[in-house]
């Protein structure tokens, strides 16, 4: 139970500042996925590491209150649904599942490549939420007792 209180005040203060920088970097990686190395998978994991930082510094009780775990579950499930909806929109517009139906734009520009940035964002959110929830449930599980049915 002592682990749930988190670390010292120095760590907490540094975390409060640095988490936002990590989230910013994660979104940079996700949004530039079609231009530079990275994309939804890498950026999503960086996002998850940023949330994991909060978990390690503040403890699981505070994190659950602050991040609204039910909301995260809903976002996780909604992202995969949105992925399917964008794919089905491709059928109605161009006649193929998961077709790239938005205008391609100019090469090397941030807003280009049609549906690829949208899929990158959805995959990033999905990976971040699911990995963070897995770690959260691992952190809450007491390996010694508890959980025995």
């Amino acid at each position: 139970m002592k682990n749930n209180q988190g670390m010292s005040i120095i760590v907490k203060t540094v975390t409060r500042v640095s988490v936002w920088l990590m989230v910013l970097y994660a979104w940079y990686i996700i949004l530039h996925g079609h231009l530079t190395p990275g994309g939804g998978f890498g950026g999503g994991v960086i996002f998850a590491i940023a949330m994991l930082n909060v978990l390690l510094a503040y403890g699981s009780e505070f994190t659950e209150k602050w991040l609204k775990i039910r909301l995260l579950h809903d976002i996780e499930a909604a992202s995969i649904l949105l992925f399917l909806i964008v794919g089905i929109l491709g059928i109605s517009v161009l006649g193929g599942f998961l077709t790239n139906f938005i205008l391609k734009g100019k090469l090397y520009e941030l807003i280009s490549a049609g549906t690829i940035p949208i899929f990158n964002i959805l995959i990033g959110i999905k990976v971040a939420m699911s990995l963070f929830l897995a770690v959260l449930i691992l952190a809450k599980t007491n390996i010694e007792n508890g959980g025995e049915v």
Partner: peptide, 19 residues
Amino acid sequence: VIELGTTALLVALAIKLYQ
């Protein structure tokens, strides 16, 4: 990516067996 998901699943099973 799938490998990491599988690792998490294996870890959960191992914890359950330990309990």
